[in-house]
Write a protein that binds this DNA or RNA. Structure first.
Length: 580
RNA sequence: GCGCCCGUAGCUCAGUCGGAUAGAGCAGCUGCCUUCUAAGCAGCGGGUCGCAGGUUCGAGUCCUGCCGGGCGCGCCA
C-alpha cells in the first residue's frame, strides 16, 4: 500500500506514455494536493513546448488515456489545463480498511537502506545543558527515530565536548582550589558555578590561561594526573546527562557517546596525512588548511586550524578525524550534524577539507542540519534576567509545574489521584516543550513562549495528546480494545471522508520528514490529522451511531487515528498520557 | 567589508520540483455543553508575501539590485 498521491502519480505517468508515447513515461506527472479536488496534475501546462499544442487540449487527451476509474471519479480539466482528481469514497474506505491490518500503517521501509549517522545533543561535559542544547537534542532524537522507522540503519552519535580547552581550564582550577575543597564540591551540586569560576580565571588571568592551555597539551599527551581528574569530571557529567535524558525521554544511551576524546589517538595521523598531502601548511605558527573558496575579513584565504601553535589540537582536528572514522569505520552513507546554525561556516570548511583530502566518497552525504537559536518573547536569545543562559533542569520543571497548574484549575482533575495527576503533568509539560521545539522548521529561530506551547489549542503537544485521550475514552466507554476495532470502514459523511483520506497520508509525511531531516513536517501532518479528527468527533457520534456498520466503521477510524497519532508522536519522542 | 540565513495577517508560524482565489493557530467578534473529555467545535473579519526590476503561459517560491534583521569571519567549541 502506498500513499494516494504516489499512486495517482503513477497512473498519470502511465497515461502520459499511453497518450504521447514512451518518451513521456519518465515525465514528472506533477500531481499535487489541490484546493479544487483531492489532487491535481499540472503536467499539461508544462508540455506545450514539447507537444506544440495548447495545454487544455493536452489535458483533455491525457484524461482520455487515464486508466483510473477504480480510484477516482471522472477527472475534470479545469482552468488553463489543470486535471482535477477526486478519489472515490469506496476506494478511500477500502484503503483505510487495509491500513487497519497493517502494522506499519501504510508506511514502507526504505528499499535501499542507508547507514545514517545522526550527530546530536553533543553538550559540553562539565557544564549544565541549556535551552540551546535542548533543541538540538530533541530535534536530533526525532530525526534519529524517524530515520530508524523509515528503515535506515541509524547510528546515534553524541559527540560530547569532553576534550577541549575548557578541560585544561577546569583541571587547573580544580587543582588551584584543591580537590577536597568546598568549591570542588560544587562540581556535584552546581556545575555551572564551578565552570564559570574557572572561566572567569581564564579570561582575567593570563598566567592561568597559559597554564590551562599547557594542561590541555598534557592531557592530550596522556599525562596520568590530568587523565585521572578528567575521568572524574566526565563521570560526574555522565550522571547529570543520564538524569536529563531520562526526564526528556531521549533515546540516547552511553553507547551512543563518542566524544571528542574518542578521536584523540587518531589526531596525529589525521594531521600528518593532511600535511603529507600538502593540504595543511604552517601559518603563523599553527598548522592550517585553506580550502578554496573561503575568504576572511580582508579577502585573504580563511584557515581551518588543524593544530594550534601551542601544539594542541582543536575541534577542527577532531571533526576531521570524526569524518574519516564515520566513513572508514562506520561505513556511513549519510551523516547528519544536528548542530546550531552558528557553526555553519565551520562545517562547510571542514567538509571541504575532507573532500579535498578524498576522505568522503562522492555518493556519501555530509549535511549540517542547522538548528536556529531559541529566542525569548523579546526576540533576543533566551536568557535569565541576570543574563545567564537558562538551565535545562529548571526549564523542564517549569513546564511540568505549569501543566500541573492548568490541571489544578480544571474541575476534571478531581477524577484523578495524586500519582496520576503528577504523571499527566509530567507528560504534558515535557511534551509541550518538546513539541514546541519540533513544530517549527528547525533551521529558523523560534520564540520560546510558555503560554503558547502549553496551550491546548493550535499546533501544540497538548492538543495532540488531548485528541488521543478522547479516542481512548471512547474505547473505554465501549469496553473495547482499539485493536479489536476491525471495521470495515465505510464512508458517508464528509468528516469521515476527510479523516480517512488524511490517515492514508501518514507514510508520505514520514518520508517527507526523513528525506529532508525535517521533523516539523510530521508535526504539521499530525496537527492536521488531529484537527480533522476533532471535526469528525463533533459531527459523527461513534458509540451512538445510527446502526452497527456505521458504528464499526467509526470505531475503526478512531482506532486508526489513535494508532497514527501515537505512532507519530512516538517518532517525535513526545510522551502521551493515557488520560488527561 | 565579505559570506551564509531570514523578512508571509496585529502576534507566532506553515507554504513540497514554480501552478488556480497565499493557509493554520493565537488574539478580536458571533454562535454551540440534557449527547463519546467544551483542555473542544462551527463561523466572521483580518494580506501590495520587505521594496524594485527580471525570467516564465504562470513567481511567496527562481535570478539581480536595494532596504531591514540575525549569525559567522585565526588558534573557544
Amino acid at each position: 500500500m502506498a500513499n494516494p498521491q504516489e499512486l495517482l502519480a503513477r497512473r498519470v505517468q502511465d497515461g502520459l506514455a499511453a497518450a504521447f508515447g514512451e518518451a513521456f513515461s519518465g515525465t514528472d506527472p506533477l500531481v499535487r494536493p489541490s484546493q479544487h479536488a483531492d489532487f491535481q496534475s499540472n503536467v499539461a501546462l508544462s508540455l506545450p513546448g514539447q507537444l506544440h499544442r495548447p495545454p487544455r487540449e493536452i489535458a483533455a487527451e491525457l484524461v482520455r488515456s487515464l486508466q483510473i476509474t477504480d480510484m477516482c471519479l471522472p477527472p475534470e480539466v479545469s482552468g488553463p489545463g489543470f486535471i482535477n482528481l477526486t478519489l472515490r469514497d469506496d476506494w478511500i474506505a477500502r484503503q483505510a480498511s487495509e491500513m487497519l491490518g497493517d502494522d506499519r500503517l501504510g508506511t514502507y521501509r526504505a528499499a535501499d537502506p542507508q547507514t545514517v549517522v545522526v550527530e546530536y545533543s553533543s553538550p559540553n561535559i562539565a557544564k549544565e545543558m541549556h535551552v540551546g542544547h535542548l533543541r538540538t537534542t530533541i530535534v536530533g532524537d526525532a530525526i534519529a527515530r524517524i530515520m530508524d522507522f523509515a528503515g535506515h540503519h541509524v547510528i546515534r552519535d553524541n559527540h560530547v565536548g569532553d576534550w577541549g580547552t575548557q578541560f585544561g581550564m577546569l583541571i587547573e582550577h580544580l587543582l588551584d582550589v584543591g580537590e577536597d575543597s568546598p568549591e570542588a564540591g560544587t562540581l556535584r551540586t552546581d556545575p555551572n558555578r564551578f565552570y564559570q569560576a574557572a572561566r572567569a580565571a581564564f579570561d582575567s588571568d593570563p598566567e592561568f590561561a597559559e597554564r590551562s592551555r599547557q594542561r590541555v597539551v598534557l592531557l592530550q599527551g596522556g599525562d596520568p594526573v590530568s587523565l585521572r581528574i578528567w575521568h572524574e569530571l566526565v563521570a560526574l557529567s555522565m550522571d547529570y546527562l543520564h538524569r536529563m535524558y531520562s526526564r526528556l525521554q531521549v533515546s540516547l544511551t552511553d553507547e551512543d557517546i563518542r566524544g571528542e576524546s574518542f578521536y584523540n589517538a587518531m589526531l596525529p595521523d589525521v594531521v600528518a596525512d593532511l600535511e603529507t598531502a600538502g593540504i595543511a601548511v604552517p601559518s603563523e605558527g599553527a598548522l592550517c588548511a585553506f580550502p578554496p573558496g573561503f575568504t576572511g575579513r580582508d579577502g585573504s584565504p580563511l584557515p581551518v586550524i588543524i593544530r594550534k601553535s601551542d601544539g594542541g589540537y582543536n575541534y577542527s582536528s577532531t571533526d576531521l578525524a570524526t569524518i574519516r572514522y564515520r566513513v572508514d569505520d562506520l561505513g556511513c552513507d549519510r551523516a547528519i550534524y544536528v548542530v546550531g546554525s552558528a557553526q555553519a561556516l565551520h562545517f562547510r570548511m571542514v567538509f571541504a577539507v575532507a573532500r579535498q583530502a578524498g576522505w568522503i566518497p562522492e555518493t556519501t552525504s555530509f549535511e549540517h542540519a542547522q538548528i536556529g537559536n531559541v529566542l525569548g518573547t523579546d526576540g533576543k536569545i533566551l536568557r535569565t534576567r541576570s543574563g545567564d543562559s537558562i538551565k535545562l533542569s529548571a526549564l523542564l520543571q517549569e513546564g511540568v509545574d505549569r501543566a500541573r497548574g492548568i490541571l489544578d484549575e480544571l474541575e476534571a482533575s478531581a477524577q484523578f489521584d495524586e500519582a496520576t495527576l503528577a504523571s499527566i503533568a509530567e507528560a504534558v509539560g515535557i511534551g509541550a516543550v518538546k513539541y514546541a521545539d519540533l513544530s517549527t522548521a528547525r533551521d529558523s529561530e523560534y520564540v520560546f513562549d510558555w503560554d503558547r506551547m502549553i496551550s491546548f489549542k493550535g499546533n501544540t503537544g497538548p492538543y495532540l495528546q488531548y485528541a488521543t485521550a478522547r479516542i481512548r475514552s471512547i474505547f473505554r466507554r465501549a469496553g473495547l480494545a482499539p485493536e479489536r476495532a476491525t471495521g470495515p470502514v465505510v464512508i458517508a459523511e464528509e468528516a469521515e471522508r476527510g479523516l480517512a483520506l488524511k490517515l492514508l497520508g501518514f507514510g508520505a509525511a514520514v518520508w517527507s520528514a526523513a528525506d529532508a531531516a525535517q521533523p516539523h513536517r510530521l508535526c504539521v501532518y499530525l496537527f492536521e490529522l488531529a484537527s480533522l479528527f476533532t471535526t469528525f468527533y463533533e459531527l459523527c457520534p461513534v458509540l451512538k451511531a445510527e446502526d452497527e456498520p456505521v458504528r464499526a466503521s467509526r470505531l475503526a477510524l478512531c482506532a486508526l487515528t489513535l494508532r497514527v497519532l501515537l505512532g507519530g508522536l512516538d517518532l517525535l519522542g513526545v510522551p502521551v498520557p493515557e488520560r488527561m
